[in-house]
Amino acid sequence: MSFTAPHIGFVLASYGLSALVLVGLTLAIVWQARSTMTRLKDLEGRAAKRRKPAKQVKPQ
């Protein structure tokens, strides 16, 4: 690709913008997945804790 060709700015702008949007989209989706996963693990931890006290009382 020759960087001195006419209208090269348009080509670079297109590729740059596409990269920006697609990478941004990917990051947003992955970040949402990660934070949701963390929240789920937290909740599952709390749910397990709520069951534990009952288990400790049981054995006589």
Partner: peptide
């Protein structure tokens, strides 16, 4: 392939979100 990848991840996220919603209700 990018769409497929992102869609799968997003679907998993949404399923997790619904599970969280249900668990919060239960809590």
């Amino acid at each position: 392939m990018l769409f497929l990848t992102l869609h799968l991840i997003a679907m998993r996220t949404e399923i997790m979100r619904r599970r969280i919603h249900n668990m919060e209700q239960a809590e």
